[in-house]
Deep mutational scan, measured.
Amino acid sequence: PQECLLLEPGLNEIMANSLDYNERLWAWESWRSEVGKQLRPLYEEYVVLKNEMARANHYEDYGDYWRGDYEVNGVDGYDYSRGQLIEDVEHTFEEIKPLYEHLHAYVRAKLMNAYPSYISPIGCLPAHLLGDMWGRFWTNLYSLTVPFGQKPNIDVTDAMVDQAWDAQRIFKEAEKFFVSVGLPNMTQGFWENSMLTDPGNVQKAVCHPTAWDLGKGDFRILMCTKVTMDDFLTAHHEMGHIQYDMAYAAQPFLLRNGANEGFHEAVGEIMSLSAATPKHLKSIGLLSPDFQEDNETEINFLLKQALTIVGTLPFTYMLEKWRWMVFKGEIPKDQWMKKWWEMKREIVGVVEPVPHDETYCDPASLFHVSNDYSFIRYYTRTLYQFQFQEALCQAAKHEGPLHKCDISNSTEAGQKLFNMLRLGKSEPWTLALENVVGAKNMNVRPLLNYFEPLFTWLKDQNKNSFVGWSTDWSPYADQSIKVRISLKSALGDKAYEWNDNEMYLFRSSVAY
């Protein structure tokens, strides 16, 4: 590609939709070469300064400071330590791993069909083939991996386009969902002041979706909304933040926050679980009234959910574990990228498509890292959202599997949720969690119950496949010279610098 592309739109479109291996590689590498390399010296300084700040406030390091958001002291029976968070994340991840490994094996087999000769049947997945710029969410792999393609499509993007949905309609439908469970409408100022579409040439905007509580009843969302099912669900997520903000607005200023950061992320995700169900999509006209649910549509639905929800958990866990180790000084600065990709291979089963030396800073190419967000919130929120969903479905008197529950129109479920939201940070999160779900610790069981039918199906699908991955295989081993030459021509001086062995191999191949 010759034109100058922004991340959004532009590069993200390539990473969402392109099936051209080399075009995807160009976009993936260009973003890291342009952005990651510029941020490397800044990120090194950032780590030093943030650690100084944390230690001045009596924390061991900046990662310890972040984990302090979960700490509860002096509340008998509800205490929770920063170290306990690490333990809980690690042991819940071990419980999730078998499901993830089977999802990984299934996706690898489907990617082998889409990119023959580029995928190893026992290796890691190349990082640039996973549906977005970071491989964070695998949602866009659904069209390549759908188990029963002859069934009606449960990705309702086409239906939204056919019905001329726009950003306003998407957010109005999200608002209807919250109102149906007894939560309030958005304010008039929300509709007047939010930026729900890309302003285009009028001004440059950071398009990463964010929710804003500017105080004095001024709530806004910034999002360059596209007419897709993914953005339909994202709208519910962002509006969930606003509902939380509005619910605790009466609290004293210092207590106007989520019980912990994971709670804030979980609220909209609960609504997304219901909004994505075929039952709900039928009720708002995005699935045909004669759409029939059966075992095959159930597996299609659960796989689509797993690509988004299960596929991202190792990504989140590994990223934050790397940062915690960096802040603690356990990874020397001259080994940041080496350790990043070692951990990516070992924990996530994902491999870099071309080698990256220590001039890169791949983590900082992600919005949340370069903008100083702690990231473990996206792991804890996933466990909380299924715990909350299970409890709210019980309040809504849902009968049947958890993945079929739609809590819309249940004011009982809405009241149970609101009673927790309005507390803000005035009560320990362990107590707030217990008030809703009857337990005071994160628990992976509801998530595993939700995906149980899919897990059973995946194990059957993978019975003749290798489950797990070898960390030795690299996608650039066989194609390295071709890849390096093409990237050198595209990126010039910003391309990865060849070492002596690679230059010798190149000259030998040319001479041959």
Rank of each mutant, 00 (worst) to 15 (best):
T210L: 09
S272W: 10
H241C: 01
D372E: 09
F375P: 07
S272D: 04
T308R: 03
M246V: 06
R136L: 05
G189Y: 14
T234G: 07
F253G: 13
Y378K: 04
R136P: 01
A249S: 06
T234P: 11
R381N: 04
G217E: 14
E265I: 08
H368I: 02
R377P: 02
F367I: 10
T234L: 08
S374A: 07
F375W: 07
R136C: 02
L233C: 07
H264T: 06
R377S: 04
T308A: 08
N257L: 04
F301A: 05
D230Y: 07
E269D: 10
T210K: 10
D372W: 00
M246I: 11
F253S: 12
G215Q: 05
F367D: 08
Y378W: 07
F301D: 05
T308G: 04
H208V: 04
L233Y: 02
M229E: 06
I309C: 02
T210D: 08
S272A: 07
S374Q: 01
R381F: 03
T234E: 07
K304R: 06
K304T: 08
Q188T: 03
P252T: 08
R377K: 02
R381D: 09
T139P: 03
E269P: 05
V206P: 12
F219Q: 12
T308C: 03
P209F: 12
F375M: 07
N193F: 00
P252F: 10
P209K: 10
L214A: 11
T139R: 08
W212T: 13
T139Q: 05
E265F: 04
Y378G: 07
D245M: 09
E192T: 08
H241K: 00
G215P: 14
T187Q: 03
T308I: 07
A249Y: 14
A249P: 13
T308Y: 03
H368C: 03
H368P: 07
H237K: 04
L214I: 13
V206L: 07
K304G: 07
D230I: 02
A250C: 01
F301H: 04
D372I: 01
G215E: 12
V206T: 10
N153R: 07
N153Y: 06
D218F: 14
M229D: 06
D372A: 02
T234W: 04
M246T: 08
A249N: 10
T187L: 13
F375L: 08
Q188F: 09
H237L: 06
G189H: 13
F137H: 07
F253T: 12
N193K: 15
F375V: 08
F219R: 14
D213L: 12
T139D: 03
E192Q: 03
K304A: 02
D218K: 15
Q305N: 06
T139M: 05
F301Q: 09
K304N: 08
T210A: 06
A250H: 03
T187W: 12
L214E: 13
H264L: 09
N193A: 12
F367H: 02
G217C: 15
F253L: 14
S374R: 05
S374C: 03
T234R: 06
T139E: 06
D372H: 01
N140R: 03
F375G: 06
W212F: 11
F375Q: 04
L233Q: 11
T187R: 14
P252W: 10
L214K: 14
S272G: 06
E269W: 09
M246A: 11
D230A: 05
R256W: 13
G217A: 15
M246C: 10
M229S: 04
D372T: 03
E265K: 10
E192Y: 12
N257V: 05
E269T: 05
M229Q: 01
V206R: 07
S374F: 04
D218W: 14
E192D: 07
V206K: 09
E269K: 10
R381I: 05
W212G: 14
F367G: 06
Q188M: 03
T234M: 06
Y373T: 09
H208C: 11
I309M: 07
M246F: 11
D213A: 09
M229G: 08
F219C: 14
A249G: 08
S374V: 06
T187P: 00
H237V: 06
Q251V: 09
V206D: 10
I309D: 01
D213F: 03
M246G: 13
L214Q: 13
H368Q: 08
H237N: 08
N257F: 05
V206A: 10
G217F: 15
E269A: 02
H237C: 01
I309H: 03
R256G: 08
Q305Y: 02
H368V: 06
M229C: 08
F367A: 09
R136A: 05
Y378A: 07
L233N: 06
K216V: 15
Q305W: 02
F253R: 12
R377W: 08
S272V: 05
H237F: 09
A249R: 15
W212M: 12
R136K: 11
E265V: 08
Y378C: 02
D372S: 03
Q251P: 11
P209Y: 11
E192F: 11
H237Q: 08
Q188N: 08
H241S: 02
F301E: 04
F219S: 14
F253A: 14
T187H: 04
V206G: 12
F375A: 05
Q188W: 11
K216Q: 15
D218M: 15
T187K: 15
R377Q: 10
N193C: 14
P209I: 10
E192A: 08
I309L: 07
N193M: 11
R136Q: 05
H264E: 06
R377C: 02
I309W: 03
F253P: 11
D213P: 10
F253D: 13
R220T: 13
K216N: 15
R381L: 05
N193P: 12
T308P: 03
H237T: 07
K216C: 15
F367W: 06
E269L: 08
I309F: 06
T139K: 09
E265Q: 04
R377V: 03
R136I: 06
E265H: 04
T234I: 08
T210F: 08
F367K: 07
D218G: 14
G215C: 01
N153H: 09
F367E: 08
T187N: 12
K304S: 04
H264C: 08
E261R: 05
D218I: 15
M246D: 12
